[in-house]
Each structure stands twice: as structure tokens, then as C-alpha cells.
Write a protein that binds this DNA or RNA. Sequence first.
DNA 1: GCGCATACCTCGGAACACTAGGCCAACCCG
DNA 2: CGGGTTGGCCTAGTGTTCCGAGGTATGCGC
Lengths: 107, 107
Amino acid sequence: MRGEALKGHLDGMLLAALAAGPAHGYLVIESLREASGGDFDLPEGTVYPALHRLEQAGLIRSRWARVSGRRRRIYALTAKGRRELDERRGEWRRFAGAMEAVLEVGR
Amino acid sequence: MRGEALKGHLDGMLLAALAAGPAHGYLVIESLREASGGDFDLPEGTVYPALHRLEQAGLIRSRWARVSGRRRRIYALTAKGRRELDERRGEWRRFAGAMEAVLEVGR
DNA sequence: GCGCATACCTCGGAACACTAGGCCAACCCG
DNA sequence: CGGGTTGGCCTAGTGTTCCGAGGTATGCGC
């Protein structure tokens, strides 16, 4: 999967992953890889800055936890984040529909 | 439609538009707007540089034409461009499928 | 002659994803 | 008990990409 493809859709994916329940960064990466059947294997350098951005925007909230000695930052959706996710899902539908139509043009 | 969404998929759209037959930049913009039901309304500052990039990459070819006094640069797909379009369509399928699955995670 | 649509172009900025690094603790294996 | 692997976090810098703003020029209707 060429990386450039997901540009602009990363935030929605992250929000969706967190909608399933609170999780830390590493786990988010894993659950996205699994949910996508291995197609999305996001590098940490992509995910961590994005999570910080989402927190900055008030869409997610974090707290530190210590699990068997290891420190983790657990992220959870805020109410605002949940609304944003709905927004993103709708937008994806429109985008995908338009894209679908456009790709059929020359066929 | 938030603009950022189309990142990474622009080239595929342009190739698809040209797969319907040779066209000049302005017309490409219009046909994409029409095909997408108005969802894609690409600014010229996006499209022209992209077309130049695609030509540079050998995916499209251009020739100048003069139609009722106005000069136009007519673009056409090359064989390589056609193969690339197939590639992109396949990639879109995979990407959209994965995205679909991921967005359902927290539902 | 003026404004509008057609048609091309470029330059700079901002956002974004990723590469490449670095840090530290726990666990497993020989 | 030493070393590698896994888990887990982070940031600085780089390249790409899209877009907004601005510029040029022609033809057409009024």
C-alpha cells in the first residue's frame, strides 16, 4: 500500500480506532493493522504526532498509566471527537462515492 | 468537500479523466466536477502543476492547439499512463476496502 | 470599451506523512 | 547474567502535495 494514499484520512482512522475503546498508541497501530487486513501498517512517526494533534484539537484526551512496569499513554475519545468521527465518516462516504464515479469515467 | 481529502488520489483522477479521451486542463476540471456530481471542484493551481508532473513522468503527453483563437494544451494518456491508471484503480479498491473496514471498527 | 468567461501559468506557504534517529524498561534465552 | 527482542514513547528534519493569490492573454456580448 503506497503511503501517500491515506493523506487526509488518517485522523478519521485514528478516531475510529479509539471509538472501540481507550487505547495507547502502540495498540492503535496494531488494531488498525488488524482491521485493515494488514493493508495499513502505520509507522510510529506518523501516529504519535497525529495523536498529539488530535489531543491539541480536543478530539481525544490522554492519561498516563503504568502497566506491568511500562508507562503508557492511554487515549480516549471526547464527545467532540465522537462528533468529529461522525463527520469524517460522512465525508468519507461522499469522497469515496465521488472517487468511484470519477474512476469509472474513462472505462 | 474538505479539500485535504483528495491528497494522494489526484493523479488517479486526472488519469481517469483523460482516459475518456484527450482534453485540455480547463476541460479536465469541468469533467471531474461533473463526474463527481459537483463534489470535486479542483482549483487551477492544483491541476496545472499536477498535469505538468504527470507529463514529466511520461504518463501523459501534450500538444498545443489553437481553437477559435484561444491556445490550448491538449493532454492525452500514454501507454504508460494507461497502465498506471489500472494500477491506481486497483490501489484505490484496496485502500477503500481497508478504510471501510477501519471506519466500522468503533461502531 | 468594459466586463466576463475561457485558458494558461507560477510562486510561496502550509499541512502532512514519513524517515531516521533516540530514550527506557521488561522479558526471554542461552 | 548478558544481550537481543519486544513494548512503548518521543522529536527533528525532509520531501511531497495541494492550494491561494496573483499574473497574462483572447474572444464575446453589451
